[in-house]
Nucleic acid binder design. Structure first.
Length: 656
RNA sequence: GGGGUUGUAGCUCAGUCGGUUAGAGUGCCAGCCUGUCACGCUGGAAGUCGCGGGUUCGAGCCCCGUCAGCCCCGCCA
């Protein structure tokens, strides 16, 4: 098809803006054909641009035949420039913002054609692999257009918020240094320095701290971070952080600049939240919700039921009660008919889920229309049942589920089931934005694999001032001045007050197994900086992708990233990662240089098991006679054909 | 690294107990159609049943392996 040129054509209006007020005006529009409805001598076409949709029309009686023919040739997603007169419609469409008007065409340019799309833009439920392969088309869809516009508005609002608070935006390096601790680094080989590597930043953590030493008391950056770890619905190998750091602050000061931002952001999507947000110590979060990022849209809490079973005939529970706190019986009670009506089959399915989470089974007690039913009913005397109901606050109908084990085990099981069942029973208030701060995280945790303590947050986090004495005596009990911002069960931010003196920093490195020498070589610049007048400082990083995901009301960060990777960390559109030319690898010293020295000639192979000096001598003599260049080698092989020893005898070498 | 799940027409899916030529809706192509807006009507083309191997007289269906998408565990300071 012969294409028309854009030429000096300029749009006069955005498609979505046209209203009855414009009736009679001649307008020029640009966009994509969403759909043609060809009724024979009357043709309609919906023209889409970034701002909306408007109907174009031409009919046989009034339109130029050439224009009508051109219009009929248009297919979905053709790119058009249209000129026409805004007119009131004969039959209006109340479902469309521009549904009262249509454009009676006086001119049409076909700027480009389009092949039939591999998937419809209108439908939900298209396979995600297909969408990712043709992401540039997927991004035409309304939902993604809205999500990315929301993301843009969000970053604008964030920048404005911090600019008003006098923050400075500073960029930090993408090519930086690999550091121990933390996630696996993405590495970039250096061409200039053979065998050496840059690392892409897991976060600009150290740079922002150094900027505090430099006197930028309020720093902000919206920056890309990289972690070479396995993916999840809310984790991509590259993601965006809103990174901030302030000097001369306490935890409350950081929270104080972030909370009003969250209030504003929530408002952009029509949610009202009020600051200050609840502060929940880590210990309570684990105790009540079995999670360090509890979803407070449901207020059901895990309860300790251990003492109730101190004299129980139910061995499983009583043995926990006898364990002096090593193991506990913990429970969740879901009130309501829906919970009480859970069938045997559903309970079995739930038990399977619990087993997946590491439970041995799923003891339950259910109070429904027919009274009590329980997997341990025979151990429940009437008095026990009354005590149990009272303890759990189970007045009416409902379902109690139990988990036995260490706190880590029971938290994991009940934390997961709490969310699953709350959602199933409609006890999760989907309309709410439930922000909170989880505070008082432990500073360190014991790592079995490495047989040492590792930092829970990162090794620059300040120990809680009250716990400084514990650092060497009981490191696991030492709290950190660290805080996570949680929204609806997602960690959307995390931060801490940092260590700002070289001595404490060195102490901490020591405790996590980084000796003085290693600390010097890996973090010398930080220790130096801390010794030249580093102010007390702290900050936080927000996960922009997760935040926008929650604002957009979607359940996957790929929906708010223009070009995301699959769960296997691949880009289906570009097919990255992919192989590269050998030449590139050589430049980066990842392959040996091209020029190599080869020795050519005959080779005598000898078994390692039974060599015979005399035979060998004869063979070598024969070989030497056979080869004009007198090039020979002696190679010893093991029984599997592996080379044990290669000894060159003589002969010239050749360069290739 | 482990577990679960999905893979059939461009797309979304159905496909019975293993049995004749693998279907539907939609999209696409052609014709008709003056008020459509998920236009309508008629007709047509369209398949490496993800890939490889096996069992069987016979495999979309059963078995083994493998690849890819998604979810989860480990991992993610």
């Amino acid at each position: 098809m012969k294409l028309d040129r854009l030429g000096d054509f300029q749009r006069t209006h955005r498609n979505g803006d046209l209203r009855l007020d414009h009736a009679g005006q001649t307008v020029r529009l640009l966009g994509w054909c969403r759909r043609v409805r060809n009724l024979g001598s009357l043709v309609f076409l919906d023209l889409r641009d970034r701002w909306g949709l408007v109907q174009l029309v031409a009919n046989e009686e009034t339109a130029d035949p050439e224009l009508l023919a051109k219009l009929k040739a248009v297919r979905s997603e053709f790119v058009l420039a249209a000129e026409g007169v805004v007119a009131e419609r004969e039959s209006k469409n109340p479902n469309m913002a521009t549904g009262d008007v249509e454009i009676r065409l006086t001119g049409l340019r076909i700027l480009n054609t389009a092949a039939p799309l591999p998937f419809p833009l209108e439908d939900e439920g298209v396979g995600e692999d297909l969408r990712l392969t043709h992401r540039f088309l997927d991004l035409r869809r309304d939902q993604l257009q809205r999500n990315l516009q929301l993301r843009s508005e969000t970053t604008n609002l964030i920048r404005n918020h911090f600019r008003e608070l006098d923050f400075v935006e500073i960029e930090t390096p993408i090519l930086t240094k690999s550091t121990p601790e933390g996630a696996r680094d993405y590495l970039v080989p250096s061409r200039v320095h053979p065998g050496e590597f840059f690392a892409l930043p897991q976060s600009p953590q150290l740079f922002k701290q150094l900027l505090q030493v430099s006197g930028f008391e309020r720093y902000i950056q919206i920056c890309r971070c990289f972690r070479d770890e396995d993916l999840r619905a809310d984790r991509q190998p590259e993601f965006t952080q809103v990174d901030l750091e302030m000097s001369f602050v306490r935890q409350e000061d950081i929270q104080g600049v972030v909370e009003p931002l969250m209030v504003k952001l929530a408002r952009t999507v029509g949610r009202e939240v009020s600051a200050p947000f609840p502060r929940l110590p880590f210990r309570d979060a684990m105790e009540w919700y079995g999670s360090d990022k509890p979803d407070l849209r449901c207020d059901i809490r895990i309860q300790d039921a251990t003492p109730l079973f101190a004299a129980s005939g139910f061995n499983l529970f009583r043995s926990a009660a006898d364990s002096q706190g090593q193991r506990r019986v913990r429970a969740l009670f879901f009130p309501g008919e829906m919970a009480a009506a859970l069938s045997r089959k559903q309970l079995d399915e739930l038990q399977e889920v619990a087993k997946q989470l590491g439970a041995g089974g799923l003891p339950y007690a259910k109070w429904g229309k027919d009274g009590l039913s329980s997997s341990f009913k025979k151990f429940l005397e009437p008095a026990d049942e009354v005590a149990l109901r009272q303890h759990l606050g189970a007045a009416g109908e409902g379902l109690a589920i139990f988990a036995v084990g260490t706190d880590a085990q029971t938290s994991r099981i009940l934390g997961d089931l709490r969310l699953r069942l709350a959602r199933q029973f409609g006890q999760l208030d989907e309309a709410r934005f439930a922000f909170l701060w989880v505070v008082d995280f432990p500073l360190l945790e014991w790592n079995e694999e490495h047989q040492r303590f590792v930092a829970c947050h990162h090794p620059f986090t300040s120990p809680h001032p009250d716990d400084l004495d514990l650092l060497e005596t009981d490191p696991g009990a030492c709290r950190a001045v660290a805080y996570d911002l949680v929204l609806n069960g997602f960690e959307v931010g995390g931060g801490s007050i940092r260590i700002h003196d070289a001595e404490t920093q060195s102490r901490l490195f020591q405790i996590i197994g980084i000796g003085a020498a290693e600390a010097r070589s890996k973090f010398g610049f930080l220790l130096d900086a801390l010794s030249y007048g580093a102010p007390p400082h702290g900050g936080l990083a927000l996960g922009l992708d997760r935040l926008v995901m929650l604002l957009a009301g979607v359940d996957n960060i790929r929906e708010v990233i223009a070009f995301p990777k699959t769960a296997q960390a691949r880009c289906l559109m570009t097919n990255a990662p992919g192989p590269v030319d050998e030449r590139q690898l050589r430049e980066l010293h990842l392959l040996p240089e091209t020029r190599q020295t080869y020795r050519v000639g005959a080779v005598f192979f000898e078994s390692a098991e039974g060599g015979n000096a005399e035979l060998r001598g004869q063979a070598l003599q024969q070989i030497s006679q056979l080869t004009p260049r007198q090039a020979q080698g002696l190679v010893t092989l093991d029984p599997h054909g592996q080379i044990l020893d290669a000894q060159s005898i003589s002969g010239p070498t050749f360069d290739f």
